[in-house]
Design a protein around this nucleic acid. Structure first.
Lengths: 197, 197
DNA sequence: CCTACCGATCGGTAGG
DNA sequence: CCTACCGATCGGTAGG
């Protein structure tokens, strides 16, 4: 990767960062690209040099949010651990992934109707992929007798919702640290899987 | 209530219904009030005869969503039941309230940035009220020794999120009936409260 | 000649 | 309550 490529990547990143902050604070359609440019000290055509449209920018931001959660479950699925330990770790890492990408997750949830059809479809598929992998993990634990789950689909969607919704109420400097919160949530998820404490 | 009042109420209801459907399908800012008028076979100024702005319409739609959940917990709090039975019933009724108002809940979640500041504040307070009542119920169960909850706040927000998120994945004619789904989710919530099955 | 930008303005559409 | 229309705003792109 040449210096030039790195400079381009850096600029794109800064634009995405600035746009994410404003989309998060004001909403997508209440944010003009001029405001995004202003917050970076550049002008609007500068943004158009790196992104072909406002909607492309939205697509990139939303993709970040989904990717983090999917990486978390992929990493854990590849580990040589018991289902209980996998689920415990997933509860932590999934929550941390969501909260480290709080803005992106919020934007994805709120603005999906503003995505280009291609992006919408791609991201919907990634979400389904995550759900399917969580169902598989729950079934694995049922097979070993560690979990007690009546309906793995409902349990997976419930766990996914519990964690995904955390972007709504989490405040970075709240009562609990991210780490302490992750422990709490992980324990709640284990009890949903029927792992007795 | 005179006939005239009833006619006015009916017209308002039909407008809200049509707007909710379109806001849900296309998103708030991608929906023109002309489209709402068209879907009712009227013209745009007809809508302005009943609502002063597009944002007021949004406020009414979002209020419906929150009110249903709050009614559910208020009704249950007033009953003479054990905490376990209250939570079990709440799991059912809360989920049913959310899914019977799927469109309104989706719109509330997605479009909060488009609400008028007054509506936003009012609805935020209603949500906080719901959370506080759920925390109180969890504490009640901890006091009687029925629940095993380490942090009632985190548990309440997690339960709230689990149920609130259901609007994302629920499909009215899916594999499970609303009733069967409510039983499943209710059981998951009881296990989060540490009630052994 | 190319890349990276700016000032100005366009077509199109929204709420009211 | 409709037709006709306004004032304002915004995404995207031209020339230089």
């Amino acid at each position: 990767m040449t210096i030039k490529d790195q400079v381009i990547a850096l600029k794109r990143e800064r634009i995405v960062e600035a746009a994410a902050q404003l989309f998060y604070d004001r909403g997508y359609d209440r944010t003009t690209l001029e405001a995004v440019a202003d917050s970076l000290g550049v002008t609007k055509p500068f943004i158009y040099g790196h992104f072909k449209s406002k909607a492309e920018l939205l697509g990139v931001i939303c993709t970040c949010g989904v990717s983090a959660s999917l990486s978390a479950i992929d990493n854990i699925a590849a580990m040589d651990l018991s289902p209980t330990n996998k689920l415990s770790l997933l509860g932590r890492d999934f929550l941390i992934a969501v909260l480290n990408n709080q803005r992106n997750i919020a934007i994805l949830t709120r603005e999906e109707k503003n995505l280009e059809p291609d992006d919408f479809l791609r991201l919907s598929n990634l979400r389904r992929e995550f759900d399917a992998k969580l169902v598989a993990l729950l079934r694995e634990g049922v097979a070993t007798g560690e979990f007690n789950v009546k309906d793995p689909f409902v349990a997976a969607l419930s766990i996914g919702g519990l964690v995904s919704w955390a972007y709504v109420w989490y405040r970075p400097h709240g009562r609990l640290s991210l780490d302490a919160l992750a422990d709490e949530v992980s324990a709640l998820i284990l009890s949903m899987a029927g792992v007795t404490r």
